[in-house]
Design a protein around this nucleic acid. Structure first.
Lengths: 220, 220
DNA sequence: GATATATTCAAGCAATCAATTGAATATTGA
DNA sequence: TCAATATTCAATTGATTGCTTGAATATATC
């Protein structure tokens, strides 16, 4: 076995190992929404700042995230949209191949997605619906993530501000809600609430990062 | 942070960790060619049987490979074509983001791909060329891997048997050689040799596993 | 310059992982 | 049933990883 090749595989293995910790995957998931300084990341992931910093540096060494200094903060971001695809593919494989993962996914959504819920909307369906102007689109993520970028025409509608925008929502058109990705629960909660209120609302089966990674247009 | 979600991410992290060792990536690369019993895998990857067995079990626990007993042997195989895609994507990201990986890839091919070599052929170009019958296709992998599956119409042409099939090769048509994937050196060697002999020969930029994973036809 | 803030570094401990060795298990064929 | 073969298990060793704590560094503001 060729030594160069062994080195190469070891390097790839190092990148894989960088993905091999729940906290780092969580950081990546957060970074897929928008870049952010360490403290904000530590905050949303419930890690100590020091710990978040160390995980971020591992991701950086693996070439998965970049860091740039801005004033006294260090802003981290994903190096590449493909990192989102990579984690997504990892999730797909885990979901179909691991009974345990499947069980976890179903538990994660079991209450929200119970009988009443409609089929989620695929990327292609959503794209077509938007193009024809048939769909009202809701971004259910927190406001700062919305401001960092969202799908064209989406209305920011986090659960706790839902009441204030109810009068903007049509009762005669289909509404689609999205959030951070297939494992994110935010849009589920909004769909559930709006369904109770009698709206025709479905969930986008992916999320903002996947949309962006697919090269589809986003709006700042 | 939701506990179910944390569990889910930890499960995904476990799958990533299973990819986090050079020996296991090598095993996967080998398995992408064809399924095989432990001893054969240990052999081509230069691991002890016990060590290979342990790595394979980790891959199995992660849901990346399957095992089935056949007589006194246990045959391992990839659970899913997407595992090939996953490793490919890992390689792509590593290659573009990590200076070191880039250096390793270029060293791996530096001698073979020196100035004289032509551009490698893309999947789409190859597909089109085959469809129009314009291309003679060589599978440069060892005979057992060829027998386990190859691209339609490919001639098995490992380097050490090249002399015996020279008279089957056209001098007036384009020849394309492929092997195990973008990091595999076998086709490079064959291309170099045939180029020296005056054939018009180029390399397929991917390999058998990627072709198969893309859902294109293969021949047993 | 001095001080405050954001991030990183360094040390230390517990936990996990990789590789080796020799024994144990399961299957086949005599 | 017994021996042979293929694979896995168990125990050990050395190395690596994750997290915490407190100190160190770099930048901005006074």
């Amino acid at each position: 076995m060729n030594q160069s090749k062994k080195d190469l595989l070891d390097t790839l293995a190092g990148v894989a190992r960088a993905l091999g910790h729940g906290n780092r995957l969580e950081l990546i998931e957060r970074l897929a929404q928008s870049e952010a300084p360490v403290e904000a990341l530590a905050d949303t992931t419930d890690l100590s700042v020091a710990n978040a910093s160390q995980h971020l540096q591992q991701l950086r060494r693996a070439g998965l995230v970049t860091a740039r200094r801005q004033g006294r903060q260090v802003i981290y971001g994903l190096t590449d949209e493909r990192v989102v695809q990579l984690v997504g593919l990892l999730g797909d494989i885990a979901e179909t191949n691991l009974a345990e993962a499947e069980r976890l996914v179903s538990r994660l959504f079991s209450e929200e997605d119970a009988d009443g819920a409609l089929e989620p909307v695929s990327r292609e369906t959503l794209r077509a619906g938007l193009e024809r102007g048939e769909v009202t689109l809701l971004d259910t993520r927190p406001e700062d993530e919305y401001r960092a970028g969202h799908l064209p025409g989406a209305i920011n509608a986090p659960l706790d501000q839902l009441d204030q925008i109810l009068d903007q929502l049509p009762r005669d058109r289909e509404i689609v809600a999205y959030c951070r990705g297939p494992y994110c629960a935010l849009s589920h909660e909004v769909v559930q609430r709006l369904t109770e209120l009698g709206f025709r609302v479905r969930r986008f089966e992916e999320g903002f990062p996947e949309w962006k990674a697919a090269g589809l247009p986003v709006q700042a």
